[in-house]
Amino acid sequence: MSDARPNDRDDEPGGTGAVDGESGDNGTDEKPDDVPPHRAVARSGRLDSEQRQGTPYTESQVIMPTVKIVAPFAFTFGLFVTFHGSGSPGGGFQGGAIMAAVVFMIAFAFGIEATRDWLANTVVVALAVGGTLAFAAIGLIPVARGGAFLQYDLLPIPVKYGLESVEVFGIAAIVSGVLMGLFFLLANGFASDGSGFGDGGTGDDIDDIDDIDDTDESASTGSDPSPVTDGGER
C-alpha cells in the first residue's frame, strides 16, 4: 500500500504538482532524478514506511503552537469552572477533568515521555493523596470542635468558602491527579517484565486482595504468591 504513494506532495505544491498527477503509481524509484539532492535529504523522513522506519518521529509543527495557544486558556477555564462552581455550572469534578485534559493535550503534542519528565510522579501522587487528605481534614475540623463531619458552620471561614475549599482542594485535586495518573499508567502499559511488584516484597496486602476477590473457597493461601503471578500472565 505504501509503495504506491506519490513521493512529494507536502512541501512544494507549486513546483511538483504536475509530477504528482502522473507519477502517482510508480513509487519512489525515480525520486533522485526529479528532486534536487538537498530536498531529497530534507524530505527523506517522509518517503515510505520502509524507509521511514529508521528515522525518528518528529512532532507536528502545527499541533505544537496550537496547543501552546489553547492549553493556557483551557487550564484557566478549568480553574474558572473549579473556583466558580458556586455561581455557575461546574465544580471540582468538571474543573479537575478539564485540567487533566490539558495535560493530555500537552502530552499528545510534545510527546508523552517529555511530559512525564516534566510532570513528575511525585506531583501526580501528591495531588491525589493530598486531595483526599485535604477533604478528610476539612471534614474533621468540625469534629474536633465538637460538631459533625463536614459541619461547615463550625469552620473558621464562612460556609460558602468551606464548600469552595472542599471543591478546590479536595475534589478537583483528586480527580485531576487520578486522571493524569491513569493517563501515564495506561501510556506505560502492563508491566510484564517482572519490574512491577509482582515479584517484589509486597506480598501480604496483595495476597489479601486476591483472597477476597476470587479465592473464597481457599482463603487460607495467604502466603502463596501464585495469584500475583497468574495475574502477570494474563
Binding site: I63, F73, F108
Partner: peptide
C-alpha cells in the same frame, strides 16, 4: 477547547 484532542490523539 477539548474537541480536537481526539483528532490529535
Amino acid at each position: 477547547l477539548l474537541n480536537f484532542l481526539m483528532a490529535i490523539a
